[in-house]
Design a protein around this nucleic acid. Structure first.
Lengths: 195, 195
DNA sequence: GCCTTATGAATGAACG
DNA sequence: CGTTCATTCATAAGGC
């Protein structure tokens, strides 16, 4: 069960009505003064309400997650250092540290193993092979199958790119901009969600 | 202070990446006494629903507002997304590497909409649906039906893959929890809006 | 301190 | 549909 504390959300605003997309919000509180009759809803109406609420719940969660991501990178300076062996639990006590966006840093030993496997021809190991490699690497530090998979992906891509790179000296006048100044404001059109 | 009871609405949801169809067929049928053919709600229940919806609407508004600020530079920095209008193929004339095809980069808003649709059950939209979605997304940036189609393809494939390989990492010196944003209600329990 | 580079990870698009 | 490729993003490391 989920409980939403509204106290923190109180705000003065609320004069717009995009939020009131669904009828149910025209009287705002004290709606039925003294009326004692019960409301009767059809299944369809019930379903509509349910979906509407679900949609909002989903959206809220997504927005919160996205907000976390956006703010995570901003204060990412407070964290433990990398995925190495250290990471002393400095936060063990009360640290409400958020954002644990650490990325895998292969140890020297792991890198050597990976490199040697890569150069032994098997450029694209299958799932089984990945598991084996991961298992082997685990002896030298924390690693996941995804890490191994990504490593090979990147290794392939970058070794290929290296080949094609060495003859690109002429700088194209890259037509990057074309920016239009007032777009920033235009972007604030209050679009809300068009389901 | 106002407390919202949400247990009845989304107790099951939030598996993300997977079905999680929050349709209500399972509990929709006359759960009360079995004798009623319509839903009967008391004023209190009605009021709760009303407040829930209102609260979500308000929250969403606020979050959207915040996001505009946070993503303002992000979106504008990338300039126009996608090759967009010009995409001048830069004739041969020596430059072969050419900036060529840029890939579609959905805007924050577009992503929000796509995610919402995906999680509302439409895992595999048909042609008609694709057109609608594309049309809706066009309001927030350039996008083609192919883009939308690909997005859903990838979304499905990757959400399925993710549940098949839960990374096999060992604890070691893992820094507390909080890993990436993916707890069910953890983000609602308390720190719902830490801003 | 920034800036540059290296590289792990995310993801749009394409392939079979 | 599942897998792979190609491009991009984000961040750790190192130089200035």
């Amino acid at each position: 069960m989920m409980v939403l504390e509204m106290g923190a959300l109180r705000h003065g605003g609320r004069e717009r009505e995009e939020g009131a997309r669904m009828q149910s919000e025209e009287d705002d509180g004290q709606s039925q003064q003294g009326v004692l009759y019960v409301k009767v809803m059809t299944d369809d109406q019930m379903e509509i309400l349910r979906r509407q609420i679900s949609a909002y719940a989903t959206i809220c969660e997504q927005l919160v997650e996205m907000h976390k991501e956006l703010t995570a990178q901003h204060d990412s300076l407070s964290g433990m250092r990398l995925g190495s062996v250290y990471c002393d639990p400095l936060i063990a006590s009360g640290g409400h540290k958020v954002s644990g966006r650490q990325r895998w840093m292969p140890t020297t030993m792991q890198l050597q193993i990976l490199e040697s496997i890569f150069q032994q021809g098997d450029g694209t190991p299958d799932k089984k092979k990945i598991k084996e490699i991961t298992s082997a690497l685990s002896k030298h530090g924390q690693v996941s199958e995804t890490n191994v998979y990504n490593w090979f992906q990147n290794r392939r891509a970058r070794s290929k790119r290296k080949q094609l790179l060495p003859l690109t000296n002429n700088a194209e006048s890259e037509v990057e901009e074309t920016d239009f100044p007032e777009d920033k404001k235009a972007n604030v059109e209050k679009p809300f969600f068009p389901f």
